[in-house]
Nucleic acid binder design. Structure first.
Lengths: 219, 219
DNA sequence: ACCTGAACACCGTTCAAGT
DNA sequence: ACCTGAACACCGTTCAAGT
């Protein structure tokens, strides 16, 4: 039983007891995404969960885009980019990439929307990029190669997190199993079942990309 | 002027001249996505473009999910996985990955939806996986490593295509430019401007991942 | 300052009724 | 077989009116 249940007896214009504000709205939004997926994150549903009207939410977040930026800022707080000033580049990249992906696996359904969200509205995201860039620079990378490397890693991270949101039976060939003997055999030979499969693929790809990047920093 | 403009004078129940059917619906859906982005691909809008009611579209595709599977099957036809039976694995992977990404950059806004769509409904997608798996197997890869490698590459491909859909100014730091000296400098030092930036990051990442995978097939 | 209530222009989906 | 028309339960967004 939540204190924010809809109270139909409240008269119009009467303020609510708990000030909604950005903080409470963002918190509730993350709660909804965690429990019911990103398709459940609607202004209307959020307002319902807060016990107010959709128009009241719009009074704080002037658009759904702004609401998503609040969520982005909140989520990026979980990404750990602290290793770049203490560890060698490869180890720092490993830690950063894992925590980055973990955050988006935990809030998986938000990936496609946050991956294309401008970062200017999220100071925390900018600080993360600054840390990663410093790691590359400290390792002797030339300025003009750094952003491409970061974008490539981030693409892999987002793609992997996206993959982790796919249904477990995404590779189920259905009635066409007979036409894919090799791939079907490879599917059955996999070491890690269910949810762990996506993790294993991420680990393998991350090691490959880091090794490949650090072996050929000239692009 | 399209022949499919809405004809309000047609009486109810009267069949249309051009049979809509799966083929015409899919064609129109791709047209809409190419011209107006994936957010414009709605059953209602599609019906409007076809000059019928939304219910008429539902008569063929019983849900939006089914419509998207038709689109998936159509789009995957553009992915070239033919190189795996004629070229060395690394070169075949390069060709496949580039054509795969090109297809989804061309139909960019569909990535987040198709990336998590079960493949059982798309025979063409299954055939593609079979070709890639055969390429790995022919190169001597053990069965249990193949799927993870494919998934890792695919995650990077989807992530890169997703990145290509991001607004050009996604890295614009806005009022916080002063707080990111290193990253800001790296942004200005990039060799490739605008749309080419995403391509460059993809190329660098692809070479890194292929090199990394083929150097350590044991994962 | 902040909310309600009502409106507007949309969605996807279902289904009886028509031809 | 295939479509229309109407309905249902939703969206995001705006805005006058209330306190």
């Amino acid at each position: 039983m939540d204190a924010n249940t809809n109270d139909a007896s409240r008269r119009r214009g009467e303020p609510r007891d708990g000030v909604p504000g950005r903080q409470m709205i963002t918190r509730k939004a993350l709660e909804i995404v965690s429990e019911h997926g990103h398709e459940a994150l609607t202004i209307s549903g959020l307002a319902r969960a807060l016990g107010v009207t959709p128009a009241a939410v719009h009074n704080h977040a002037s658009s759904k885009q702004e609401l998503l930026q609040w969520v982005q800022e909140e989520i990026m707080a979980g990404v750990d980019a602290s290793a770049f000033c203490e560890l060698p580049l490869d180890e720092a990249l490993r830690r950063w990439a894992r925590s980055y992906r973990d955050v988006f696996v935990h809030h998986a359904p938000l990936i496609p929307v946050i991956a294309v969200l401008p970062v200017g509205g999220s100071p925390r995201t900018l600080r993360m990029y600054e840390s990663v860039a410093r790691g590359f620079a400290a390792a002797g990378w030339p300025d003009e190669e750094i952003v491409d490397a970061i974008v490539a890693l981030e693409s892999f991270i987002f793609g992997s997190a996206l993959d982790a949101t796919a249904p477990l039976d995404i590779f189920d060939p259905g009635p066409h199993a007979a036409s894919i003997p090799t791939f079907g055999g490879a599917l059955r030979a996999r070491r890690h079942p269910g949810r762990q499969a996506a993790d294993a693929a991420f680990q393998q790809g991350l090691e490959a990309m880091i090794a490949g990047l650090l072996a050929a920093p000239a692009g």
